[in-house]
């Protein structure tokens, strides 16, 4: 059964794409595509093959979309629409520094659908008991950890150590990654000092501009929980290329247009 195989894939965090035929007598026919295997049949072997290839391309990009083919899978055909839904593992949130803010941030990260890891070099502070919501609590030097951790465009790095001893080596490693968000906690003065240190060691202004510091949106957050909300807002706003003000003050549509727009 396709559904059971899909459920197994999701449980084991294996990337999978579910393809549904939207037109013709075989409407609803299913195909489940993994990186190296596929199950199911969309009606013709040509269509099944073409949709499998397309599903793997979308899976690699983590995208969900509608594609149109000929009845036998011809790429220029317009007979059959298929819906390709990519299921990719949750993105990673790495929180550096096991402090009060980390506990609130870990909880917020879980709430937003991240796999959350908290990293701190001090075994006394980096404990599961202090960070109950984190998926992983790791005792390691932050820069050592990040140098070998998986990072992609969906990865979020939150640096709460605010100690130059940890921050600067970590920011050097962070700027070499493709992480979608790099936030560093600290006052304006702390951040100015960081920028100075990074510049002295050869980092360009464009690289330094990737760092969100002081971290978060300007909502006047006071508690660790409110700060987590402020950081979460900034993470989403940057991903969506938004400024993060009040909707009441704006004129843009409330939701950004999506890739699948106008495909039907």
């Amino acid at each position: 059964m396709i559904f059971e195989r899909l459920a197994d894939s999701l449980r084991t965090a294996q990337p999978a794409a579910l393809v549904t035929r939207l037109d013709g007598p075989q409407t609803g026919a299913k195909l489940l595509v993994h990186v190296d295997t596929a199950w199911g049949d969309l009606g013709t072997s040509g269509l099944t093959h073409a949709a499998t290839q397309e599903a793997r391309a979308l899976l690699a990009a983590g995208q969900t979309a509608i594609r149109t083919f000929g009845e036998d899978g011809e790429p220029v055909g317009m007979d059959v629409r298929v819906f390709i839904q990519a299921f990719v593992p949750k993105p990673n949130m790495y929180i550096f520094g096991a402090i009060d803010f980390s506990r609130a941030m870990a909880r917020m990260g879980k709430y937003l659908g991240y796999t959350v890891s908290v990293i701190d070099a001090r075994p006394i502070f980096a404990t599961k008991a202090r960070l109950p919501d984190a998926d992983n609590v790791i005792v390691a030097w932050p820069d050592d950890f990040l140098a070998s951790a998986p990072v992609d465009e969906r990865t979020v790095l939150i640096i709460l150590t605010h100690d130059v001893k940890f921050d600067i080596p970590l920011l050097h490693v962070a700027l070499r990654t493709t992480a979608g968000y790099i936030g560093a906690m600290g006052s304006r003065r702390t951040h100015a000092n960081r920028i100075e240190a990074l510049r002295r060691s050869g980092r360009s202004d464009a690289e330094i501009a990737r760092i969100s510091g002081p971290i978060g949106l300007d909502i006047g957050a006071r508690t660790p929980e409110e700060t987590a909300v402020s950081i979460a807002g900034e993470i989403i706003a940057l991903r969506e290329n938004r400024r993060g003000g009040r909707l009441i003050d704006g004129t843009l549509p409330v939701h950004n247009a999506r890739l699948a727009d106008a495909m039907l």
Binding site: A7, T20, F83, Q85, V254, R258, A260, L264
Partner: peptide, 27 residues
Amino acid sequence: ERWRGEGQRIAIATVVGVEKSAPRDPG
């Protein structure tokens, strides 16, 4: 999965496309 375990028949409705401003994404 729980419903299936109980022998319930099930229907699934999936957003496959959105235009302009929509509250939920495809999927």
